[in-house]
Simulated assay, not measured.
Amino acid sequence: MASPAGAGAAPGGLQIQVSPVGGRMRVTIRGEIDLSVRATLQAVLQEALTRSTHGVDLDLSGSAFCDCSGLNCFLAVRHRALPTGKTVSIQTASPLVRRLLDLTETWPLFA
């Protein structure tokens, strides 16, 4: 599992890199986001949120696929961030991930 200090490979070849940028944590995800990587993704996002001062920025430009379990991970970490005054934003997304966010009308939640 990746830690906020570096990078790592999750199940299914998913690659996650977490790095601090000011008071935020930048989480870069490469590969397919599906049910097989849900637990790892949840753990990494929660740790990044905990270590951040202001929130988490996601780079999903290298994610060729994201199913509803991945979207639910993003929504869950956003839900945990809001009461603490933190935010979760999606800085970039691949066309397929952007389409999922558009179809589910969730893109504005991460703007």
Rank of each mutant, 00 (worst) to 15 (best):
C66F: 07
P108I: 03
Q46V: 12
A5C: 05
L71Y: 09
S3A: 12
S19P: 00
Q17I: 10
G62K: 03
T53A: 14
A7I: 10
G31F: 08
H54L: 10
F74P: 01
R24A: 14
L101E: 03
M25L: 15
L45P: 02
D67L: 13
L58G: 02
K86V: 12
T28N: 01
R26W: 08
L75C: 08
I16F: 03
S3Q: 14
V44D: 09
R24L: 13
E105Q: 13
M25V: 09
E47I: 10
A48F: 02
A76M: 14
G13N: 12
P11K: 12
L75K: 03
P20H: 05
S69N: 05
I33Q: 07
E47P: 04
S89D: 05
S89T: 15
R26I: 08
P20F: 03
I90W: 00
L49W: 01
G85A: 06
L35S: 10
L49K: 01
G6C: 11
C66A: 14
T40I: 06
G62Q: 11
D102M: 03
I16M: 13
G55C: 08
A81H: 02
L101P: 04
T28Y: 00
L58K: 01
G12I: 11
T106K: 01
L103R: 00
L101V: 11
R99A: 09
G13T: 12
R80Q: 13
I90G: 02
L45S: 06
G70F: 06
L14W: 03
E105R: 10
T87Y: 01
R78P: 00
V27W: 01
A7H: 09
Q15W: 07
S36A: 14
A7F: 06
G31H: 08
V56D: 02
I90L: 04
E47M: 10
P83R: 05
V97F: 03
G6S: 14
I90H: 01
I33K: 06
V97S: 05
R80V: 07
D34P: 04
D102F: 00
I33S: 07
